[in-house]
Design a protein around this nucleic acid. Structure first.
Lengths: 198, 198
DNA sequence: AACATAATTCAACAGGTGTTGAATTCAAGG
DNA sequence: CCTTGAATTCAACACCTGTTGAATTATGTT
């Protein structure tokens, strides 16, 4: 009573995931508010009502379209446990390796754009990512009273680069090889861990 | 044929600027898309149609509500010309001294929130601020081939802090004394200017 | 071939949006 | 006082939004 693929060549995504991909794309480009269900439906080649059939409402569609980063954040957590003093570089490399992949980038762009607009789910997803990864994993490895503040400043640097490179696409940072960016950012991240300024 | 203040006590703002202040406030809290003219009108204690009488349309109202930072950016340009090697600290101090004032902060929040949503004017205002101040003023003081990239990474750090502290209000950065933040950020900014990593 | 069920579309709704033009209040000038 | 013009409101418009329920098509099962 399942497996209903009509004239769909094998390997091609089914309608549900086609909607999901269209949603991710439109959310990434426009943010939650400007992304209309009719736009998403059009990009998926589908009637708007079908979206409700599969996902219920716009909020649930958005929720379904941003659950990809969960897997990505797990990678961050995983890669952070084992390194001692080279934390800045590892953090930068992992962070940007995620952003440079198209699939998570699209989802993250949707989150970032929508979070700024005030969409509750996006704000919460963003907050949870930063606090769970940055605060829980990073802060314990930093000595001193202001460990959590330093960890969040590291996160701020990364978020800032994500904004200028991926969201606003400002030159020359948007077109720079990601390795150049990593080489420049990593030492500054590391300095938040190492150095004690009075 | 002018000077029309009815029962307004002296020093109190006239209706036009009351609308402007309400607009700034609502834009800052909700971003361009979610900020409705009816909300702004209500906060100003005024009929929505009066907004059109004074400002024409929503775009022009937004434009009028974000021209305050122009004066602020001039301050940045001014304070940057005269210092040699202490650039990181001066930049951080000036940047945050602007953000810590309520009036420009409100306008900047509106710009930032709306720019992420894709509002063209906001994107352009933001891009122009970053390129004119950061690129034109900062980059020339940095040696090396990647001067512009380094300057934009400095800007990214500042933008990232603005996002976490003022937009998303993440703790502990949101409640930290601004001087603590400056003390931590300034050396990293300066390192973008000074250090040559191969 | 006939049925059942999922996939998909159609047409329409109720609500909110920016915007408009006419109507009304109000303050000043002759 | 009465007229002029600005300040302000009223009521309504056309449009777009998310959403819904019924109708229609397609598909797999018996």
């Amino acid at each position: 009573m399942n497996a209903r693929q009509p004239g769909r060549r094998p390997g091609a995504p089914d309608t549900r995931t086609e909607i999901l991909e269209a949603a991710r794309s439109v959310f990434a480009e426009n943010g939650f508010d400007r992304a209309t269900l009719r736009l998403i439906a059009a990009e998926a080649g589908v009637d708007p009502a079908l979206i409700h059939h599969y996902f219920g409402n716009k909020d649930q569609l958005f929720a379904a379209s941003i659950d990809i980063p969960d897997a990505a954040t797990d990678r961050v957590l995983g890669l952070l446990v084992d390194d001692p003093a080279d934390l800045g570089r590892h953090l930068a490399e992992t962070f940007f390796s995620i952003w440079e992949q198209e699939e998570p980038r699209t989802a993250l762009l949707g989150i970032l754009r929508s979070a700024m607009g005030g969409e509750d789910q996006a704000v919460e997803a963003f907050r949870q990512f930063l606090t769970s990864v940055m605060m829980a994993q990073l802060a314990p490895k930093i000595a001193g009273e202001d460990a959590r503040l330093r960890a969040l400043l590291m996160a701020s640097q990364l978020v800032g680069v994500a904004m200028t490179r991926y969201v606003m696409r400002l030159e020359p940072i948007a077109s720079a090889p990601i390795d150049d960016v990593i080489d420049l950012v990593a030492p500054r991240l590391q300095s938040y861990v190492d150095e004690d300024f009075a």
